[in-house]
Design a protein around this nucleic acid. Sequence first.
DNA 1: CTGAAAGCGCTTACAG
DNA 2: CTGAAAGCGCTTACAG
Lengths: 339, 339
Amino acid sequence: MPRSTTANSATMRDVAERAGVSVATVSRVITGAAKVQSDRRARVEAAMHELGYQPNHLSANLRNQRVRMIATVVSQIDDPIVSELVQAIQRAASQADYGMLLCTTGDVASTEADQLRGLARQRVAGVVLRSCDPAAPEISELLDLGIPVVALDRTVRDRRGDAVVIDHVEGVRRATQHLLEQGHRRVGFVGGSRDIEPDALRLVGYEAAMREVGLDPITSAESSRMGGGWLGAAKMLDRHRDLTALIAGNGQVALGVLDTFRDRGIHVPDDLSLLVVDDPFWCGLVEPRITTFAAPVQRVGSSAVRLLMRRLENPTAGQRQVVHELELRERRSVATLAG
Amino acid sequence: MPRSTTANSATMRDVAERAGVSVATVSRVITGAAKVQSDRRARVEAAMHELGYQPNHLSANLRNQRVRMIATVVSQIDDPIVSELVQAIQRAASQADYGMLLCTTGDVASTEADQLRGLARQRVAGVVLRSCDPAAPEISELLDLGIPVVALDRTVRDRRGDAVVIDHVEGVRRATQHLLEQGHRRVGFVGGSRDIEPDALRLVGYEAAMREVGLDPITSAESSRMGGGWLGAAKMLDRHRDLTALIAGNGQVALGVLDTFRDRGIHVPDDLSLLVVDDPFWCGLVEPRITTFAAPVQRVGSSAVRLLMRRLENPTAGQRQVVHELELRERRSVATLAG
DNA sequence: CTGAAAGCGCTTACAG
DNA sequence: CTGAAAGCGCTTACAG
């Protein structure tokens, strides 16, 4: 008869009694942390089976002062790029035998702070943070508790954490150069909000490339969502009728840009060339397939988990930063202009 | 000087000492579970602040025998429908002050079993399960432990759990009727795999609607992914040259169907009408915008969390099932045939 | 290799 | 309203 107070749930103690061994031995069998005589091991395994024993990690967590879970904090996941990223993180975590807690912030700093505070209380093993508030004190509190934080794609002020960096400036610089090489001169950049770090950096990369060849940048930065792309493209096309190519600063904005194109009956690439930064799945499926410059999202996600796991194993390891570059995925949305 | 053994982390005991009260009082202040004299309360709050105290849920979890986390188990999230669903679940959980653990199974039964076993060990508060193996014994083990399981969109054999059901049969029956009402007779259904419950049910709904009016069903069920739609549509178009409309059985399959259309230069809706079951965001954005029949995904997600919360509050409540219907979102991909 | 025992940091019945 | 104490179910140094 189990003595456990939790309804119909055997404990290690029940198993130990049934197998005629100590709870220490049962624990050793389960964790595999130490050798146990094979006949005792067999008795323990039989007892576990007979009792339908399910280990209770709650107590192990307390004892070990850690949960085998990492947290991923992002704005929202109903953006194909983000869900691809989260998926990659989840897979990598799962392979390392860690669960993944998903937190969304809607890019609202106070929500992010709430989430981070909750993660501290839960003592998650680590957090992958695509932050909207680099200076949040909650980040430091996590670090103070010994919970590693990996900054993903967005800087964090507290420099104790590792980081996965995407080189947006250089990537978009090269993206712009790609258009210039195809003979385009009047190239506009419909970007996301300047308040969002990667979007701001992309704008910088574009401007750099244009200025390097003595051209005036033509930019818009309404918002990082679809509506911003729609509005930005509309205004830009009104003001600059001689544009031959547009760069959409991210996947959401690109959807809006395409909407504007449709409103006006603009055909890609005959009327206007289009290059998208980021490569959501639909860019490879629409007609015409869209040329993109994109980070290797899967690898970005697994890098983050790798950094986290490394620090979990060695909390005092030197601070590390992994940089990923954007890569050209050439498709059919960019026309080559005659000399 | 804190006595805690965990590095630089104050415990309730440290707070109690500093405030000159018992740990019980500190606990009462934090949980708000009982009244505390206001001056003592103030002392406790001051002490917490001075020590930078962060409550440690690990111990509370053990004591309470539950974590304030629910788990969501789905195949993968890089499908817009699934990420929308997961997002909705995450939001609803967050509003109820629960965290959300995300598990993906790739629709592989053994992976799902592993995940469920892990959730049992972690003693999550509840699980929202879009299962690929209705008969998995791990589901019963969760229920045995008193962990509520809500079956989402896919049946679970163990009938102790609540369920959120989507009425695919009736929905697709009506979708098919919608096409018939527009004058179509030769309507094909490019569905997902018959091994996946919702896809199988959708096929049934289509066949029912066709037979009701004395028409022969024309179906394909290659796989539930994009490739299945591509192949299925190609074969079907080869064999049935007189088709006037196609139904794509889910969003992934629809992408493949569109690929086939592009390969063959088929224009929607002039050459062929298209109706998609499910409404991933891109259906409202492509040209022409695609008419769909879809479940209210947000509400499906929040229903699941509501059922879970209800059962958490009252574990012995009667078993409940919430049914959602597919709704028509009429756009421009279906032509009306004369006659 | 094995067991008795301490302890992880909370919460809550119990007594006052 | 408050405190002392038990206990949640494990893991692991310690002694043998």
